[in-house]
């Protein structure tokens, strides 16, 4: 199971691609669908590879990304 997961606000995304370039695990890609503003938004193409590092969310100029990480048993 993936260690992390990102939730992308599709309608807030402007399809700039900075998150896709920033992801060290190459999880994200442009969707073939468009959002209501007409942008090809980013989505998790390979969700199983996500480690929850939040690099995508840090680079997102529209703050459209939330990042969740798996709880580690203490």
């Amino acid at each position: 199971m993936a260690k992390g997961v990102v939730v992308i606000d599709e309608d807030r995304c402007k399809g700039c691609g900075l998150c896709i370039a920033a992801c060290p695990q190459h999880v994200l890609d442009f969707s073939e669908k468009i959002n209501k503003s007409g942008y090809n938004y980013a989505y998790m193409k390979y969700p199983e590879k996500c480690v929850g590092c939040a690099f995508c969310a840090m680079t997102c100029p529209d703050v459209a990304i939330e990042v969740y990480r798996e709880k580690v048993a203490a």
């Binding site: 998790m44 939040a54 703050v63 990304i65 969740y68």
Partner: peptide
């Protein structure tokens, strides 16, 4: 795409 985030810790979100 709905994602199941139950039992996960939010590490990054929109500032308050």
């Amino acid at each position: 795409m709905p994602v199941n985030t139950e039992n996960m810790i939010k590490v990054f979100g929109r500032p308050k």
